[in-house]
Computed example of a mutant assay.
Amino acid sequence: MTEIILASASPRRKELLSYLNLPFKVQPSSFEELFSPADVPEEVVLRLAKGKAADVAQQYPDAAVIGCDTIVVCEQILGKPRNEKEAELMLNQLSDRTHTVWTGVSILYGKKRVEFVERTEVTFWPLTQKDIQAYIKSGDCFDKAGAYGIQSGGALFVRKIHGDYYSVVGLPVARLKREIAPLLSI
């Protein structure tokens, strides 16, 4: 069976990939996630996903390597907050609004390449400063695009979602299954 490598340090992506019931290894990528807030979102996530997959594929040339990236867009790309002030600004920007979450996936297997992007719309309830400060104090806002985790405490902010929930978490696992199956003949 083909070795599968997840090019991510995300525990959420690791958990989601396990839903496929296929053996895999985790090898975080050292690819630098650089972008400008004004860049085209779907191009950013695909470029970053491809970069992560290509970085790890150098170490595992015979494996199927999966690279992923997720960003939040509300007027501009919101990355991961670097501090409490950035987290507060992001959460205030998302409050009582609809934003878009983009997840890009790149699968490299030898000379074969499968790439796709998922788009999901998320609408937040109005957030009070008390809500925002309590969430920031929890620490859950860090290391997450847009300063929230929909699979954890950030779920309390979500009024509605249109699209793939798991894409917002970081890996559109149902689509991944359909894309990787023919590639690996499984």
Rank of each mutant, 00 (worst) to 15 (best):
I66D: 03
G67F: 13
G67D: 01
G67V: 14
C68D: 11
D69N: 13
T70R: 09
T70A: 00
T70C: 07
I71Q: 04
I71S: 03
I71T: 06
V72E: 02
V72F: 00
V73E: 08
C74H: 04
E75P: 00
E75L: 00
Q76F: 05
Q76Y: 09
Q76M: 05
Q76N: 10
Q76W: 02
I77H: 10
L78E: 00
L78F: 12
L78S: 01
G79W: 11
K80T: 12
K80P: 09
P81T: 10
P81W: 09
P81S: 11
R82Q: 15
R82D: 12
R82G: 15
N83D: 15
N83H: 07
A87N: 00
A87S: 11
L89M: 13
L89H: 13
L89N: 08
M90Y: 09
L91S: 08
L94K: 04
R97W: 06
R97F: 06
R97A: 08
T98C: 15
T98D: 11
T98F: 00
H99D: 02
V101T: 03
V101F: 02
W102F: 15
W102N: 07
T103L: 05
G104R: 12
G104F: 06
V105A: 10
S106C: 15
I107Q: 03
I107W: 11
L108G: 02
L108R: 14
Y109F: 15
K111S: 09
K111W: 01
K112D: 11
K112P: 03
K112T: 08
K112V: 05
K112R: 10
R113S: 10
V114L: 03
V114M: 12
F116A: 01
V117Q: 11
V117I: 15
R119E: 13
T120E: 10
E121D: 15
E121M: 13
V122Q: 01
T123G: 03
F124M: 13
F124Y: 11
W125N: 12
W125D: 08
P126K: 14
P126N: 04
L127T: 11
L127K: 05
T128P: 10
T128N: 07
Q129D: 15
D131G: 14
Q133D: 13
Q133S: 11
A134W: 11
A134C: 09
Y135P: 06
Y135G: 09
S138Q: 08
S138T: 14
G139K: 05
D140Q: 02
C141I: 12
F142N: 07
F142R: 08
K144T: 02
K144R: 08
A145K: 04
A145I: 06
A145H: 01
A145Q: 01
G146P: 00
A147C: 07
Y148P: 02
Y148S: 04
Y148M: 09
G149T: 03
I150D: 02
I150N: 02
I150F: 05
Q151V: 08
Q151G: 03
Q151Y: 01
G153Y: 06
G153D: 00
G153W: 01
G153R: 10
